[in-house]
C-alpha cells in the first residue's frame, strides 16, 4: 500500500474561478524524498494541504476524486486523524508557534492527541537533541530568528511521529544560511527513513538529495520522475522553474555539441563530468 495516493483528485476553493488541482493522480511511497516545484499559483500548497485533509476539511470547496493517506480517505476522516501520519510544516514559522517556549511547543501536538506525559517528555528531550534546540529551550518565539523558529516548528511537527514530513516552502521566509540549515535537517530526516514531500524553489540546494521531482503547472502535474531526467527537460525553462546552475551549464554545452555522460546537479558533479569528457 502506498503511503499517499491521489486518485483523480480535483479541488476548487470556495469562491475561486478555476480548479486549484486538476485530476491529480500519483502515489508516494515510504522513504521517498519528493520535491515539488512550479510557478506560484500552480497548486503546490493545495497539494500539500490535500495530503492531511486540510483540503477539503478545513478549506472547503468543490471536490472530485479521492486522496488516501496511509490508506485512509481524506474526505471521510478529520484532519486530526492524519496528524500522526503526515506532519505539515508551513511557510511562515511565526504562525506555527502557538506557545511561549520550545518545550511546550513540542509537547503541544502529542498533548492534543492524549499521549502519556512520560512519553511526551521523552519525545521533547529527543527532539531538542535531534534538532539542536538546547540553547533555545526557554526562549519566547519572539526572541528567535526565523530559522530558529522554523527549526522549532519542525520539531513540533515531528513530535507526533509522522510517517511523512510535508514541508510547504519552509525556507521562503528565511535568509540563505538558515535555509540551508533547514534543508540539511530535512535531508537528514529522510536518510533516517522518513518520507519527505518538500515544496521548494531553490532546486540547486535540494535536487541532489531528492529521489523524485514533480513539476506542477496550472493545477496539473506536468512532469514526474528522477531529478536528472526532469531537470534536463526544456519544459523547466518553459514554465519558469529555477534549474540548478550546474544543470544549466550541462544544457548549454549540449546545444553547442558537447554531450556529458550524465546530468549534473551540483558544481562538483559538473566538474567531474567535464574532466571525464575532456580526458577522453
Amino acid at each position: 500500500m502506498a503511503l499517499i495516493e491521489f486518485a483523480d483528485f480535483s479541488f476548487k476553493y470556495l469562491g475561486a474561478d478555476s480548479l486549484a488541482l486538476k485530476r491529480i493522480k500519483l502515489t508516494i511511497d515510504e522513504g521517498e524524498y519528493v520535491v515539488i516545484t512550479g510557478p506560484s499559483g500552480c497548486g503546490k500548497t493545495t497539494f500539500c494541504r490535500a495530503i492531511n485533509a486540510l483540503v477539503p476539511q478545513f478549506h472547503r470547496g468543490y471536490v472530485a476524486g479521492n486522496v488516501y493517506t496511509d490508506g485512509k480517505n481524506t474526505r471521510e476522516n478529520e484532519v486530526a486523524t492524519f496528524a500522526s501520519v503526515a506532519g505539515l510544516v508551513f511557510q511562515n514559522p511565526e504562525n506555527q508557534l502557538v506557545t511561549l517556549d520550545v518545550e511546550k511547543e513540542i509537547a503541544f501536538g502529542p498533548e492534543n492527541l492524549g499521549v502519556a506525559p512520560d512519553e511526551i517528555r521523552r519525545r521533547v528531550e529527543e527532539l531538542i537533541d535531534l534538532l539542536d534546540l538546547e540553547e533555545l529551550r526557554e526562549k519566547h518565539p519572539h526572541e528567535m530568528s526565523g530559522g530558529e523558529q522554523q527549526r522549532v516548528a519542525i520539531a513540533a511537527t515531528l513530535a507526533l511521529r509522522p510517517k511523512v514530513l510535508v514541508a510547504d516552502e519552509p525556507t521562503s521566509n528565511l535568509d540563505p544560511t538558515s535555509a540551508e540549515v533547514i534543508l540539511e535537517i530535512i535531508a537528514h530526516l529522510n536518510k533516517r527513513g522518513m518520507a519527505v514531500v518538500l515544496v521548494e524553489h531553490r532546486l540547486d540546494l535540494v535536487a541532489k538529495d531528492a529521489s523524485r521531482i514533480i513539476l506542477m503547472n496550472k493545477g496539473r502535474i506536468v512532469a514526474d520522475g528522477n531529478p536528472r531526467e526532469i531537470l534536463a527537460m526544456d519544459l523547466c525553462e518553459e514554465i519558469g522553474v529555477g534549474v540548478p546552475k550546474a544543470t544549466q551549464v550541462y544544457k548549454r554545452l549540449k546545444t553547442r555539441g558537447v554531450e556529458l555522460r550524465n546530468v549534473p546537479l551540483t558544481g562538483v558533479e559538473l566538474a567531474e563530468l567535464v574532466q571525464e569528457a575532456t580526458s577522453r
Binding site: 486530526a80 504562525n95 498533548e111 492527541l113 492524549g114 499521549v115 506525559p117 511526551i120 507526533l160
Partner: peptide, 26 residues
Amino acid sequence: RRALSIAESMESRGFGASENRTYMEM
C-alpha cells in the same frame, strides 16, 4: 489572515482531537 494560518497549523497538530487531552507538566 494570520489567524487562519495559525488555525491551519494547530489543526494539523491535532488541536481539539482528543477528549482526553494530556499535559506534559501538571
